[in-house]
Design a protein around this nucleic acid. Structure first.
Length: 227
DNA sequence: GCCAACGTTGGC
DNA sequence: GCCAACGTTGGC
């Protein structure tokens, strides 16, 4: 991903878009590597089981809340940073993984997503945000100074997209990965809403879909004891 | 800091 | 189109 970075990570304030259009899949002419080309088409491998992708409406997006430097730039962007942004809104830039990008392209304004803290002391869900601007060109792919610069992407056919998200609220309590994992294992053994949760079945995906059942169950945990 | 899992690259 | 090598993600 980014020049050696995580595929998640958002940063700075949004509202700065201007990219307007963007569009689709752009599968350019065919010289792309096949894995990439396949991933880029989206639909297919992302839902290997269902020919017609389910149409997701809830999401989970990962970002690192603790400082970590790359090329002298801090990748830190936790929920507190989103909350502190102008209008509590930010673009979610820096995603450099096709599946994650494709999921972002499916996002609709008004949908909600969990803000997940990754690669930190205690990974887990910290809060909830709302998608306030649908997919448009991620400008950082063209910025040589940016950690997520992608020399292979050209302005006349951008590879990467981003969305804008707005802080909604913190969850009533932090929901640690360890707790979610306990439920996942439990549900996998005896059945339950988290049995196929992407956080565990596709651990490296930085932008992932949740079914409403998964989302509601996870959210119900904020009113329960830490387990 | 380690390293398993897995996505991407690129030779053939 | 296969697949080994390589690079990244992210928990622990």
């Amino acid at each position: 991903m980014p020049p050696k970075k995580r595929a998640r990570v958002a940063k700075r304030s949004a509202k700065t878009d201007k990219g307007a259009a963007e569009g689709e899949t752009s599968s350019s002419g065919g010289r792309r590597r096949k894995a990439a080309a396949a991933a880029e088409t989206g639909g297919k491998e992302e839902s290997s089981e269902s020919p017609a992708s389910p149409q997701h409406c809830r999401w989970l997006m990962k970002s690192e809340p603790e400082s970590r430097f790359e090329n002298g730039l801090d990748l830190k962007f936790g929920i507190e940073d989103l909350k502190a942004a102008p209008d509590q809104t930010s673009c979610w830039d820096g995603v450099r993984n096709y599946q994650a990008r494709n999921f972002m392209r499916q996002m609709k304004e008004g949908q909600v997503a969990f803000f997940y803290h990754s690669n930190c002391k205690e990974p887990g869900i910290a809060g909830i945000m709302e998608i306030v601007k649908e997919a448009y060109v991620d400008h950082t792919q063209f910025d040589k100074k940016d950690v997520h610069y992608d020399a292979t992407s050209k302005p006349d056919n951008p590879k990467w997209s981003m969305v804008d998200v707005q802080y909604q609220r913190m969850t009533k309590r932090y929901l640690p990965l360890s707790e979610l994992k306990n439920y996942h294992l439990q549900h996998r053994a005896k059945g339950g809403p988290l049995k196929d949760m992407a956080l565990f079945t596709r651990a490296r995906l930085s932008v992932q879909p949740l079914t409403t059942e998964e989302f509601d169950f996870v959210l119900s945990l904020e009113d329960k004891e830490p387990l």
